[in-house]
Amino acid sequence: METTILIAVAAFLAGILNAIAGGGSFLTFPALVFAGVPPVIANATSAIAVFPGYLAAAIGFKEDISSVERKQLIRQTGITLVGGLIGALLLLVSSNDFFTAIVPFLLLASTAIFAFQDRILAWGRSGGLQLTPYGAIGTLVVAIYGGYFNGGLGIVLLALYAMWGLTNLNVMNGLKNGVSFVISAISVLTFAIAGLIVWPSAIIMMIANILGGYFGAKLAKRLSKTIVRNIVIAVGLVMSAVFFYRLFI
């Protein structure tokens, strides 16, 4: 019962966090690991647990998403499907030991990118770096990352959008949730076929995550950008510290 409550609460809060700014897997993945699920299987189960919440949140941002040209939306969908599949296939050939060793570095890196995205963007512009908005290479790289390791996907996407020069947080959140759903859908299908999903836990977490995602989309439009950023950064740093502790202690 305690384990069920733990993963359900983690999934609900993850839905809220993903809708607001990303980083929901910082909660679902550790919850499954702490519940005794092996890291690779925990990552796969976490991916299926949060992906319905992405759809619920995207629906909450449908007006903001519709402001993006349809041609670009279709193009982004195609690229993310390819990248998500590549990332998922890479996870299938990763061992638990290897995955456990790189998780804290992935968590910390994604948190740092989000925390310093304004400085990174300013540095890039001052150095003549110009990223093409809705560019294929950036989208593909992030999609591969998301298919391999769902943790921090929303944060990395927001950082990418910032590097593109997007400034409307609601549009960025809408795109982030829509793209995250597409990446998660193809990776979840791959994981399910490979038999990496702990279905009883996944179903409980999916239901809780849908509720959290819809609630979070409404909440996101009421919170200031500063509060959102601080929440995500704090969660990312705490989870990074926890996994570094598990790796070295």
Rank of each mutant, 00 (worst) to 15 (best):
M1K: 04
A10I: 12
L13G: 05
G15Y: 09
A19W: 12
I20H: 07
G24A: 04
S25T: 12
S25K: 08
S25F: 04
F29H: 01
L32N: 00
L32I: 06
L32H: 00
G36A: 07
G36T: 08
I48G: 12
F51H: 08
F51A: 05
A57C: 14
A58F: 09
G60N: 12
G60V: 11
D64K: 13
S66C: 13
K71Y: 09
L73W: 04
T77G: 06
I79T: 04
G83D: 09
G84L: 03
G87W: 03
L91P: 12
L92A: 03
S94W: 01
S95L: 06
D97E: 12
F99Y: 10
V103S: 00
P104Q: 03
F105Q: 13
L106I: 01
L108C: 05
L108T: 09
A109W: 09
S110K: 08
F114M: 08
F116C: 08
F116T: 12
D118F: 15
R119V: 03
I120G: 08
L129P: 09
Q130R: 10
Q130L: 13
Y134E: 06
A136N: 09
L140G: 00
L140P: 00
I144V: 08
Y145E: 02
G147S: 07
G147V: 01
G154L: 04
G154M: 09
L157R: 05
A159T: 02
L160P: 03
G165A: 14
N170M: 10
M172K: 08
M172G: 05
M172F: 14
N173Q: 10
K176L: 01
K176H: 10
G178A: 01
S180W: 03
V182N: 04
I183Y: 02
I186M: 07
V188K: 05
L189D: 01
A194M: 05
G195H: 13
L196Y: 11
I197D: 06
V198C: 07
W199R: 15
S201P: 11
I207T: 10
I210M: 01
I210V: 10
G212Y: 02
G213Y: 12
G216T: 12
A217I: 12
A220K: 07
K225Q: 12
K225P: 13
N230V: 11
V232D: 03
I233V: 14
L237Q: 04
V238F: 08
V238S: 07
S240F: 02
I249L: 07
